[in-house]
Amino acid sequence: MQDVRDALYIGHRSDGTLTRRPMSPHLQVYRFRLSMFLSIANRAAGVAAAAGSVLGVCWLNAASKGPESFKKVQKVTRNPLGKLALAGWTLALVYHFVAGLRHLAWDAGYRFEKKEINEDGPVAVGVTVGATLVLLASIFGVAACRSRKKKKAS
């Protein structure tokens, strides 16, 4: 035994002889649970939200630079692929927000029993999907109305 940490892996068999205990088992030995997916999804959503925020800063920068830079950004935001990216960013932000509220509740000592966590998981999924759809419909709806109004005016 070279490393002091190995001491923690040494255990006793029932007959008293020493044994090397197994390391923690890997993901594939566990049955799939919604809570484990929601946990890693929160982290993934945080990373995606961060990446989208960087693009959001680019939008802000283009707006402050002038009409020509802003037109370039509009080419992205009005492109179907750009819209898909915006939808993905929205989904990531909404889920990270919902999961964050759950974390704040857990930290305050609420809804942290196993039963409650399993009850809240599907609710979190429903709220995320619903809020994302409503938000996207409103954003694209408002944008469409605005461009129609502008066409009428010109």
Binding site: A62, A63, S64, G66, P67, F70, K71, S138, I139, F140, V142, A143, A144, C145, R146, S147, K150
Partner: peptide, 14 residues
């Protein structure tokens, strides 16, 4: 604010 600015032109944002 996003709902206010959706589809906005640069002068609206300014």
């Amino acid at each position: 604010q996003v709902l206010r600015l959706a589809g906005a032109e640069q002068q609206d944002v300014v």
